[in-house]
């Protein structure tokens, strides 16, 4: 099983992305050439840039962003954290689910600038080093996916579902996991995985 990445391995890419040149370069492309409003902190003029500090998976990132950048686009296109997926961009599918201060939210309907000051957890931040989170392990064990595209969102939603206390019965799990569409139709296996993981999560 290989995962071809031309040029750089994922790890290398992440370290590059997190360092200043790539991010600043991306922003400079916008700022350069045009006379633009100045970058400010915490507020922005229309058409300007805003300095945003994002805390993602325990790491702090300083970005200069168009205030229109959503959290999912900031994660994927600015920080190289592509585990969070885009399935609709309109809050209809749950693929972009992340945790914001421990609460599951949709990163496609969250402005990056509005996420400042919050602790964001994405699928990349769930495992403990090499050890998978019990929910991740349960998804593998129960084949709770097929194509895997909705899976990061499903798993983050599932972890929250257990923590919220909404995994008490199969029916409750089904209802509280209905914000995450799985077009492959792995629902019964997703429910089985959550039931399995919830005991291991100490719920």
């Amino acid at each position: 099983m290989t995962n071809p990445t031309p040029g750089a391995s994922r790890r290398e890419f992440l370290s590059t992305a997190a360092s200043a040149p790539l991010v600043a370069g991306a922003a400079a492309g916008v700022l350069g050439g045009e006379a633009r409003a100045q970058t400010t902190t915490g507020a922005a003029m229309a058409g300007g840039q805003v300095l945003v500090t994002l805390k993602v998976n325990g790491q702090t990132h300083r970005l200069s962003l168009d205030p229109r950048v959503t959290l999912v686009d900031a994660l994927r296109e600015h920080l190289g954290l592509t585990g969070t997926k885009v399935g609709c961009n309109h809050g209809q599918c749950g693929a972009c689910t992340v945790h914001k201060d421990g609460v599951r939210v949709l990163s496609c309907l969250t402005l990056a600038v509005a996420a400042e000051g919050s602790e964001i957890t994405t699928i990349e931040g769930l495992a403990d080093g090499d050890e998978l989170h019990p929910m991740q392990a349960a998804f593998v064990q129960h084949d709770a996916y097929q194509c895997g595209y909705c899976t990061p969102g499903q798993i983050l939603s599932a972890v929250a579902c257990v923590k919220e206390g909404h995994a008490g019965s199969d029916a409750e799990i089904r209802e509280y996991m209905s914000g995450n569409l799985c077009r492959c139709g792995a629902y019964v296996n997703i429910v089985a995985a959550i039931n399995d993981a919830k005991t291991k999560m100490g719920a």
């Binding site: 939210v105 949709l106 914000g179």
Partner: peptide
Amino acid sequence: AASPQIRNM
């Protein structure tokens, strides 16, 4: 209403 994620937001 909506979904758990939307209700959280």
